[in-house]
Amino acid sequence: MPVTMQRYKLAGMNKKQGPIGVFDSGYGGLTVLKEIIRELPQYDYIYLGDNGRAPYGIRSFETVYHYTLECVQHLFNMGCHLVILACNTASAKALRTIQQNDLPKIDPGRRVLGIIRPTTEVVGKHTRSRQVGIFGTAGTVNSQSYPIEIEKFFPDVTVYQQACPMWVPLVENDEYSSEGADFFIRKYIRQLLVQSEDIDTIVLGCTHYPLLAEKLRQYLPPDVQLLSQGSIAAKSLADYLERHPEMAAKCSTGGSREFFTTDDTETFDRQAGIFFEAPVKSKHLSL
């Protein structure tokens, strides 16, 4: 069902400071939030995981767009002036439409940022061979967002992509460090590297995948480097706020963290602690 502006009231929040919103379809965005807090601990943060409708990676562009917009609206209603889509699928399938079509109608003073662009802005600084690999969900790979964005900044870089549909289930079922995970780790590595033996840099294009990094390094050639998005996104956000002091002034600085999930809070708290590497106490949000 289309999201309509009539369903939401922004309650005059423009005049008040508010937390920075961080959104993901599930748990993976917590790996990004963890790095953002490490880089910018002074700000207040609200994390929203749409676990009740995850995974997004297998859903259509239209569905991901409507789900993402609905969650962004909820974060706006909670007082956020700035929302980070800490989800590759949402960044690939929904970000541009929200930025170009929805924000001007909702509130031109608010901002929604993604995590694909910050990664593509720096990937060319890491590769020597100019051959880059992407591990991602089917939705992110099919969107072609990484090749399109990388070409804007580094037209001499060739991009090879590999969808890894089994990796998110392995992580979310706490099987990512088991021996059973090795088969799917090796499988997708082979399928990527067979495309080019000269790949020397691989982007972990899903926020779940940092939990697989240790196993990935066991089976990757030693000279191949892995890029995780958390620290890149955190540095990019710090730079953004420095360049946009008018937005930084709208972000409250009490050092608080709140967590919301559209699914069961007990399950979320248990799983979230793995990604966030700290205890999490969430609240339920009904959509």
Rank of each mutant, 00 (worst) to 15 (best):
Y43K: 03
D198E: 14
I202R: 13
K9S: 12
D198H: 14
A213D: 14
D24R: 02
D198V: 08
T31Q: 09
R257K: 11
Y146Q: 06
F76L: 02
E277L: 09
K105E: 07
Y43N: 06
A94Y: 10
G273V: 00
K93C: 09
Y240T: 07
N88S: 10
T63N: 07
A278R: 09
D174N: 15
E151N: 14
P169W: 08
N173H: 10
K9T: 13
A138I: 05
A213W: 14
A272G: 15
Q161M: 14
F76T: 04
K125C: 12
R217A: 09
Q100A: 01
E258T: 03
L211E: 09
K16V: 01
S196H: 15
V171Y: 03
W167I: 12
K105C: 04
H74N: 12
G180L: 12
F184I: 09
T119F: 08
M247G: 02
Y176L: 05
D182W: 03
R217S: 14
Q161E: 15
Q195K: 15
K152S: 15
R111H: 15
L226S: 04
C87N: 08
S129R: 11
L220M: 11
L216F: 13
G29F: 01
H284I: 03
V194T: 13
S236I: 03
I116H: 05
T261P: 11
L227P: 06
D223W: 08
A86E: 00
Y45T: 03
L204W: 03
I58N: 13
A181P: 08
Y67K: 08
V171H: 00
S228Y: 02
A248E: 12
E35M: 10
P104G: 06
Q99M: 06
T68M: 02
K34Y: 02
L95N: 04
Y240R: 02
Y43R: 05
C251T: 09
Y188S: 02
V168G: 07
T261L: 08
T253I: 11
T267R: 08
V83M: 10
I274V: 14
I199Y: 05
T120K: 06
Q42D: 15
E175Y: 03
T4A: 03
E246K: 14
G114I: 01
A278Y: 00
S236D: 15
C87T: 09
V123H: 04
L95E: 02
F260L: 15
K9L: 09
L227V: 06
L287Q: 06
